[in-house]
Structures are given as structure tokens and as C-alpha cells.
Computed example of a mutant assay.
Amino acid sequence: MSGKVVVVTGGTRGIGLGLVRSFVDLGATVVFCGRSAATVEAVAAEIPGTLGVTADVTSRADLENLWDRAVAAFGQVDIWVNNAGRSHARKPLWQIPAAELDEVIDLNLGGLARANAVVLARMAEQGHGAVWNMEGYGSDGMMQSGLTGYGATKRAVTYLTDSTAKDLDAAGLAEKVTVHHLSPGMVVTDLLTHDYTPEEFEKVKKIFNILADKVETVTPWLAQRVLAGGSNGSRVAWLTKGKAARRFATAAFNKRDLFAESAAS
């Protein structure tokens, strides 16, 4: 597994940062990006050996520069993880500020589509590579009020990945260049817990404590399986339906409080 060159978008916080750390721990060479130059520099200093690049993944030019920087530094890109994404305020679609909704759609779907287009073209020229697209709530068709914009983008990510896998197969590239689904499940980050009132959070916290996990629990497992690879169009999923069912079945006997430390602080 070691020795591979991995690019992680949105690698300065949350799951992305956890993946950067985990890939490094597993012996990979890691390039990551973020939109804030100061944050990118801070993470690169914190994790020696990584290359941080300031980039906005909604920009083709920035994506091309990110690829070029990685290749200039390390000769190739073996794995590209499209992790960058964001959510919006938990409101009905028509109440979400226009700029906020536009940014979610452009980043989660537009940015990911552009990244796939840019990176897969470069990997085809290179002769090998794997792209992993990050799924999220809504990817499996589940729905929740207040998450319409975000959920729709993640549902579209699943279609885009499946369809792109078929395109690679039809083009005769799928033996060397592949695209995959990466599904982290519920992970305790700002993306999961934001925009709840204290009363609302007390209610959803019960579900989170059953189904969610911390970044440091999930990302090493995800990174290991991404490095191991898989067939074109395959999925790596942390929270499967079977695992969720077992957790609900044993919830009364297995009390967890994922938020105890934050509450104490």
C-alpha cells in the first residue's frame, strides 16, 4: 500500500484532514488542497512530508494546477479523493440564501464534476489512476427536511460516479483508470452537527450516538481500503445497512456519548 501518491481535496479539516493523516500514516505521499492559504500552510507544517496547495475546486484552472503541482513534486498521481464539500442552513429550499445554495451546488456537484473531468483525462494520459468520489446524506436516496440542496447534490454524485464508471468501461480504460464511491457514513464534524438549536441537537444526538463515529475512527479504515483499490465503480462504505441495524439492536446495551469531551470543554 505504501509509496502511492494521493491527492485529497478539502484536506484541511474534518474527514479530509483525517484522510490526509491516515494516508500519511499508511506510507502514502499526500498532496492536499484547501481554499485558505493560511490553513493550507498550517496543515502542511503540522503533517511533515505533505504538499499543501491553495485551490478552489470549482475552478478548472485550480484543479489543473493542483494536478500539475502534485506531478511536478512526485512524478505522478495514483489516487485522487474528491472530498471537498459543504452543506447549507437547515431550512426549506426556498428559505436558503441564494448565494449559499449556489455555493453548495457548485462545490458539491459542479466542483466534483469538473474534478472528475480534469483528473480522469490526465490519468488516461498517464496510463493509470483511481478517483474516489465522496458520498454523503442523500446518496442512497434517503431524504430529510432542511437538507434538500445538500442531499440532491450527493444523490447526483452517486449517479455521476456510476455513469462515469460506465464511460471508462466503454472507452476501454477501466482496467487501468477507475472511479469509485467513498461513503464515510455519519462522522462527527461541523458538517454533521451544524445549525441545530440546543433543543434540536438534544433530540438528534441520540441518533448520532448510535450511528455516528469520530473522524479518527473512520478515516484510517477508509484510507486503508482506498489504498487497497477495487474494481471500477466499486464502493467502500463504513456504515452499511447491516452495521446500522446491529447498532440499533444493541443500542440499549452499548451506551456511547461521542460528544462528552466537547460538552466538558
Results as ranks from 00 to 15, higher is better:
Lys214Asp: 14
Trp132Leu: 02
Trp238Gln: 11
Trp94Asn: 02
Arg155Gln: 07
Thr153Ile: 05
Leu211Trp: 13
Asp195Glu: 08
Pro220Asn: 09
Asp195Val: 07
Ile105Gln: 02
Ala84Arg: 08
Leu101Glu: 01
Pro184Arg: 13
Lys255Glu: 07
Ile96Met: 12
Ala37Thr: 14
Glu175Gly: 15
Ala260Asp: 13
Gly10Ile: 04
Val226Gln: 06
Ala245Ile: 07
Val31Arg: 04
Ala156Ile: 06
Ser265Gln: 15
Val187Met: 12
Leu109Cys: 07
Arg246Lys: 14
Ser231Gly: 15
Arg21Tyr: 04
Phe74Pro: 01
Met186His: 10
Asp102Leu: 15
Arg13Gly: 01
Gly75Val: 12
Phe23Pro: 02
Gly110Gln: 02
Lys154Ser: 06
Val187Trp: 10
Asn254Ala: 15
Val5Ser: 13
Gly14Met: 11
Leu182Pro: 00
Ala89Asn: 03
Asn209Arg: 14
Met186Ala: 10
Asn65Pro: 01
Ala55Lys: 08
His128Glu: 03
Val179Asn: 07
Cys33Phe: 04
Ile105Ser: 02
Glu64Ala: 15
Trp221Gly: 05
Leu63Cys: 06
Gly172Asn: 03
Phe23Lys: 06
Gly136Gln: 02
Gln76Arg: 15
Val77Asn: 01
Glu103Pro: 01
Ala237Ile: 06
Ser2Tyr: 03
Ser2Cys: 06
Thr161Gln: 01
Asn82Val: 04
Thr58His: 00
Asp106Glu: 15
Ala130Glu: 10
Leu191Cys: 02
Ala124Tyr: 14
Val6Gln: 04
Val71Asn: 05
Arg90Trp: 04
Gly149Tyr: 04
Leu192Thr: 11
Gly149Asn: 09
Ala45Asp: 09
Ile210Pro: 02
Ala37Val: 12
Pro220Trp: 14
Ala228Cys: 08
Lys255Ala: 11
Ala252Val: 12
His181Asp: 00
Ala99Phe: 01
Asp213Phe: 12
Val118Arg: 00
Asn232Ser: 09
Met123Gly: 10
Val226Thr: 12
Ser163Lys: 15
Met186Asp: 03
Lys255Asp: 05
Gly151Lys: 03
Lys255Met: 09
Ala98Arg: 14
Lys206Ser: 08
Val177Thr: 11
Ser231Cys: 07
Pro220Thr: 13
Asp195Phe: 12
Ala72His: 10
Asn65Asp: 10
Val20Ala: 12
Trp221Arg: 14
Ala70Ile: 06
Thr178Gly: 03
Arg225Leu: 09
Phe259Ser: 09
Arg13Gln: 13
Ser231Arg: 15
Gly230Met: 05
Ala98Gly: 00
Leu51Phe: 11
Met1Thr: 14
Thr58Leu: 00
Trp94Gly: 00
Leu120Asp: 03
Gly185Arg: 12
Ala244Ser: 09
Arg21Ile: 07
Val53Leu: 13
Ile207His: 14
Phe201Gly: 04
Gly49Pro: 05
Val226Cys: 08
Val6Asn: 03
